[in-house]
Simulated assay, not measured.
Amino acid sequence: MLTTNAPALSFVKPFLLFRFRAFSTSPRTISIFPATKLHSFHSRRSRVCAFIAMTGNNAAAGVSSPEHVAGKWYSVPDLRLRDHRFTVPLDYALDRDVSPKISLFAREVVAVGKEEQSLPYLLFLQGGPGFECRGPTESSGWINKACEEFRVVLMDQRGTGLSTPLSVSSMLQMKSAKDLVDYLKHFRADSIVNDAEFIRVRLDPDAKPWTVLGQSYGGFCAVTYLSFAPQGLKQVLLTGGTPPLGNGCSADSVYRVAFEQVIRQNEKYYKRFPQDVEIVREIVKHLAESEGGGVRDYQT
């Protein structure tokens, strides 16, 4: 079910927002999308289903273990925060004892005085890709509103922030381009969904479905979540991060529309700053004459 009705949570009203409700279904059933080519989700869904079966629902929240270490509560104005570190498989398709391990960092946020209250969880998926989820320095904005109803979980997606990073030094350790590609493929949206499920069943002793708020690229991850693991979701909120969903809505068709918009904006810019026309021509000429350079003229 996909609607554009205003959600019950007022803190998301200023955004362009879609609300999804995920129903309890078989891991191989998608509640809201037909069985079509939705970013090749179906080709990878079996990995996620295997992971879900592997994790189970018997984890106890707040208990330190080799897979999950919870820190102590600390404060910023009007909020209480707690850091969590998880040891997760690099490759969820492999047996947990066989796969290399990486570290995953998440920050739990509640309003002051609500540390011990039984509140539902809301996972925030940061935009990017490649951006960490910065912790709040005070209670303001959407965090302030969300903490009225939820325990907010701010996850540094794998490869970012305080999770195992993707850095120049780490990638230079790869022996070949193939090894690098094989490593990087474990940092896509499907693995981020696996990480979210890993966290969910360890934070909540009852492993209840939670709410996910996806911002920009986080919205893409949230839609992947709806396809791979809808049973882990109560609802999904998207703020400006919706991948192409219609038939025939390919990357090329999206780019063509974007090119038309860029041309219109360029024309407006040159009318306002005509002196820059010659500068841009010189830049294009330089790129075209440079080895490996060149600027394609999309107007022709």
Rank of each mutant, 00 (worst) to 15 (best):
M1P: 06
T4W: 07
F11S: 09
L17M: 02
F20D: 08
A22R: 06
S24W: 03
S43A: 15
S43M: 09
R45N: 15
R47Q: 10
R47M: 14
A50E: 15
F51L: 14
F51K: 04
I52R: 09
T55G: 01
G56Y: 12
N57P: 07
A59S: 11
V63D: 08
S64F: 03
V69I: 10
A70E: 10
G71W: 00
G71R: 07
Y74G: 01
P77K: 02
H84K: 00
F86N: 04
V88A: 15
P89G: 11
L94H: 07
L94I: 04
D95I: 04
V98I: 13
V98Q: 13
V98W: 02
F105P: 08
A106P: 04
A106Y: 02
E108Y: 00
V112I: 03
F124Y: 12
L125M: 13
L125N: 11
G127S: 11
G127M: 08
G130C: 08
C133E: 12
G135R: 01
S140P: 05
N144L: 08
K145D: 04
A146G: 07
C147N: 06
E149W: 00
F150N: 04
R151G: 04
V152K: 01
V152G: 02
M155I: 14
Q157S: 11
R158T: 12
T160R: 06
T160H: 06
T164D: 09
P165H: 03
L166T: 12
V168Y: 05
S169D: 15
S170Q: 13
M171N: 13
L172H: 05
Q173T: 12
K175N: 11
S176H: 10
D182K: 03
K185M: 13
F187C: 08
A189Q: 09
D190C: 11
A196G: 07
F198I: 06
R202S: 05
K208P: 02
P209C: 00
P209F: 06
W210R: 06
W210P: 00
L213Q: 01
G214I: 08
G214H: 09
G214S: 10
S216I: 11
Y217G: 06
F220L: 03
A222C: 07
V223L: 13
T224D: 15
F228M: 05
G232N: 10
L233T: 07
K234C: 05
L237V: 05
L238Y: 03
P244E: 03
P244A: 11
N247F: 10
N247I: 14
G248F: 10
C249W: 08
V254Y: 10
R256A: 14
V257S: 15
E260Y: 04
Q265Y: 14
E267T: 12
Q275G: 08
V277T: 11
I279A: 13
R281H: 13
A288Q: 14
G292P: 14
G293H: 08
Y298C: 11
Y298E: 15
T300W: 14
